[in-house]
Design a protein around this nucleic acid. Sequence first.
DNA 1: AATACTTATGCAATCGCTTGCAATAATGTT
DNA 2: AACATTATTGCAAGCGATTGCATAAGTATT
Lengths: 320, 320
Amino acid sequence: MATLNDVAKRANVSKMTVSRAINHPEQVRPELRDSILHVMAELNYQPNAAARALVSRRTRVVKLTIFEDMDTTEPYYMMLLAGIANELNQHQYALQLATRNSYEVGECDGYILTGIRQKNYAWVEQLKQPVVFFGRNQQGYDYVDTNNYQAIQDSSAYAIQSGYTNLVFVGIAVDEPFEQDRERGFRDFITANQVSGQLVQLANHCHVATDYVRQHWADFPSNTAFICASDRLGIGIEDGIILQGKRVPEDYGVIGFDGVLLNQIASKRLTTMKQPLEAMGRAAVRLLLANIANPGSPATPHDQEKIIINSRLSIAESTR
Amino acid sequence: MATLNDVAKRANVSKMTVSRAINHPEQVRPELRDSILHVMAELNYQPNAAARALVSRRTRVVKLTIFEDMDTTEPYYMMLLAGIANELNQHQYALQLATRNSYEVGECDGYILTGIRQKNYAWVEQLKQPVVFFGRNQQGYDYVDTNNYQAIQDSSAYAIQSGYTNLVFVGIAVDEPFEQDRERGFRDFITANQVSGQLVQLANHCHVATDYVRQHWADFPSNTAFICASDRLGIGIEDGIILQGKRVPEDYGVIGFDGVLLNQIASKRLTTMKQPLEAMGRAAVRLLLANIANPGSPATPHDQEKIIINSRLSIAESTR
DNA sequence: AATACTTATGCAATCGCTTGCAATAATGTT
DNA sequence: AACATTATTGCAAGCGATTGCATAAGTATT
């Protein structure tokens, strides 16, 4: 492997000039720079990241830590990954993937955290590095989120406009900001618009939703729309309705959340509140890189920066 | 951040002894070692990965390169990721994620490659580092794979045993080893068992499969079983059949491949040939780490090592 | 034409750690 | 008890790059 020195000798300059030709091109005479670049290509020179990191204290690595179990096949994260990886690449940063219990090997310049729960904040605090969250938090950390509150209001409004007369919000049984925001959105909506409605929390699995429909069928008059907090729940609810011999969307409506399963199961055309996960991933990267470039914003609470990217209703066949 | 020197001073030993206490514990007197570890904990010492990598030429980073576009939400990769990430963590290695067109920042000790196509091999060859592939290859690189040939034979045999009398293999329209193996398995099966059957290749999307069923419906006598090369295709085929007013599994059977969508869509109980992706991911890591530890096995063809982990039929509701 | 500025380049030190060899202490052998 | 082994520890060098300061060359100012 060629080193800076090899290039320098071959180009008849000092290491420093080569280093500058790479990192501060404007500081070196154009013709000389070109000849250096030429030698670099000739020798197939690649800067040694370790040496660089050692002295510059910049690893050019960002760590994405997913707190939820990775055993579950969660396409949600895959979409996020796409956005994050692509944006990092554009900035010539590498992405390192970690789960909460990863061995803490390999330093990085900052963290993107997702799937985080209250209990994990202690761990976050001892990180003395820039951090960006996925999802609202009250600890003062920067975050990227979608407009959960408004999104559920939009879904609800759409259901009412479509002629459904009773709403059921099917939430996820976790005590996290995103869920709180959605529930608040729903409650405020039915109050403000004097709509008949109820709210329930379930574990986030299809069959749980399906079971729920069966067990509580008496509660759901015809013309009810189910506003769900995930596509999984939406699909489960839809199946439950069909098992009762009713039609979707004629008799009952279903609206999901996330918009992540739909692409795969084309025939399951669920109307859903689609999160712009790719864009959110990119935004998180940009925010984090800004924090890295602009120090004085460690993992400790400071002026909290928020980026909210709106979800949009993707209308399909589970609503009329 | 505490350095090796800080620990050494505090513990009244030389840096070297501290270094040994970490890397070669057996070489340092037990009581001394304990006191050093104690000081390390006290100072919250973390070895500097960059410095380490610089001198030892080991980064303790493995790069997973996914060649397919990451825009597609492919849960397949998420399962792989789970296995790879977990196994790497156990060996105190970090996982770095890259797409083919990633900026080549950050060195690593080896590569796990997946989603690779023929055209990418040129890129692989110029990698002068240990490499493990997902999927068979004829270039001589080590790989982990599932028993595609036998798996399709098993699926086919199961369909016949279940009383279906005509088979259709619905393959993916790519010219890659995994597809070749599956098609060969199918052809050999119908030949050897004198079963009536046909073979088709489609783009790997639900709706393509659904359309295919509609357009070629005349070709499918009742009691046909579709052996599909992916769950997506399987789900699409199933929908196509139902749209024709026929019943699954009574009139027609459908068997998928991968076993990766099922967990999410509980109601879509597709019989499928389930790939042990988590185990395959772990195996790939172990194979790669062995290659790293045991040099003389660069990215150039050598004695090709193969690990085959069998897929198993997961029987559900789309077959009788 | 002499001085003051820029602009380009080089030198030396250093980042934190590990490799190879040397030195010391502890143990065993006859 | 003198010597050969083995177990522990330390020293010095250097991995490949970047930072800060010094120097040399080039241009502008009066």
